[in-house]
Amino acid sequence: MKILVIEDHPTQLKLAHLVLSAAGHEVREAAASDQAFLAIRADRPQLILVDLVLPDVDGLALIRRLKETPETRDIHVVAVTSHPERYSKAAALAAGCDAYFVKPIDTRQISGQLTAIANRSAAQG
């Protein structure tokens, strides 16, 4: 599936890109929210993997915006964070994301986890 990774840390962006494309996904990248919205308009992804600490906006605010905008509200959103003490699972889910992972991502499992989330949400919706 088409996945947009929103992550400002180059190493982690590269790793997510590598792992997900190796599993057969089509990966697009954005390092900040403005780039993310451009990327979504240019080529709509099925799932967005978003880091909660971004240079130009709070990740939770970005998720709320995605879920409030009619054109993007049906895209699955998965939040990741290195700061579980600052961004709790409950807060992330309340903002509207479909799943929440604490970093580091498990490179062996992340692709399967994302596919399951997309399928589960599709079945429910």
Binding site: T11, Q12, L15, S82, H83, K103, P104
Partner: peptide, 17 residues
């Protein structure tokens, strides 16, 4: 500690790949 460790782990994963 999580942030610097995530950095190290990412670099490690990339090297192994």
């Amino acid at each position: 500690l999580r942030t610097p460790l995530v950095g190290l782990f990412s670099v490690g994963d990339l090297i192994f790949s």
